[in-house]
Design a protein around this nucleic acid. Structure first.
Lengths: 212, 212
DNA sequence: GCTAAATTGTTGCAAATGCAACAGATTTTT
DNA sequence: AAAAATCTGTTGCATTTGCAACAATTTAGC
């Protein structure tokens, strides 16, 4: 059993939701794969809600090195409210065609005075952001382990717990996984081989099995 | 100018706040330095609000290695709502004497139906958690750089931007800083010396100046 | 003010990691 | 279907990093 994902529109009836979103002057936009999704508009706290498709939250540093900060799936949210004003630039880049609804946080908050559904949506938002924070904490746990081996094992462990199975498919390419774990890809491949030789894992093209 | 900290009790008048907290059956507890602050109660989404003092959010892994996930200051919050059910154990440990108010999230949410101040508090909570998420993103940015040198420089850069000055005091001990950056302390000291020799920074016992 | 504990500062050495540079496989684009 | 681009898998080598161990200094507890 997978930890259930908080649904941003949970507990709001479809019709009421439409009315609410309209009254919030929300905006639904479509993006093609590889397009950059702009989400920052001066002086407005926009919140982007992934409706369909996948995107990555990416950081480019001054060396041009790319790091995947997060993967965004339907129901996930992103916002410049959650992005530091003084850190390096983060971008949201569509990995597949996708559909994003933008709402203005201030509008939502205002609406809470009169609409019970707005309160529910705000709560859902809170739940989603809590889960996002959990994901970040997990990421930090991975990144603070001290070796490539332990990063890989911690990552596999987490996936295993997430899917409640010793066997699971890697959603990342190896190239992306190395980026995610902030390690050198070739060194990672080497360690992956060592893990297989030590019979700690099995790896039949991207299908990992933990053997202990 | 420092980025202002969102205040959890902002925009609520002192008297109304007292009334609100009482009606939420909040609980204020006192802890001594080095005490562990329990914040997990079965089936209840408690939110801890740091009123006074400092604490650290700590992770212990199976090797006994300790990592500081976050520093908590007055106005910061922590909750098992933000902690993964399947990652390793996190603890909140008081570093000074401190005072923590616990509220139940569900109670707060319920209250939003009838109390405008509850909505304000929920918004404040949202603001604080957004800032927390930003902090985590920054941490991830530090951790994803590929060398001790770049971690140190990125950390100093961030502090410099935070305090809007090329000179600032380290709030961490070197031992803790190494933990925070997830690097070996002795290796960090070595690199710190190299940074001084390369005239990239100045370091007069914990007062760092960036020289470029 | 004394003692114990923690932190800082240093070093030699071994091991882990990153880098560069490939070839082959696979996927995507035209 | 051919060409281009990306991803996988591998290796040798240099460098960085962690580890262990220690003395010196500072801080905290009694």
């Amino acid at each position: 059993m997978m930890l259930e994902k908080p649904r941003i529109y949970e507990n709001i009836e479809q019709k009421s939701l439409q009315k609410l979103l309209t009254s919030l002057q929300s905006n639904t936009l479509f993006y093609k794969a590889n397009q950059t999704i702009a989400y920052s508009i001066r002086n407005r706290n926009l919140i982007g809600i992934m409706e369909n498709g996948e995107a990555n939250l990416i950081r480019f540093d001054y060396n041009g090195d790319r790091t995947i900060i997060d993967e965004l799936s339907p129901g996930d949210i992103f916002s410049d409210m959650f992005i530091s004003t003084y850190s390096s630039e983060l971008s949201v880049i569509a990995t597949t065609n996708c559909q994003v609804t933008f709402i203005e946080y201030e509008e939502l908050l205002k609406k809470c005075r009169t609409s019970q559904n707005a309160v529910i949506l705000l709560n859902n938002l809170f739940q989603v952001i809590s889960k996002t924070l959990i994901k970040r904490n997990e990421r930090i746990e991975l990144l603070t382990t001290r070796s490539i081996r332990s990063k890989l094992l911690a990552y596999f462990e987490l996936q295993s717990k997430k899917y409640n199975s010793k066997t699971f498919n890697l959603s990342y390419s190896y190239t992306d996984l190395a980026d995610y774990l902030a390690i050198d890809r070739s060194a990672m491949m080497r360690e992956l081989r060592a893990l297989k030789e030590d019979k700690l894992i099995q790896d039949v093209n991207k299908k990992i099995t933990i053997l202990y």
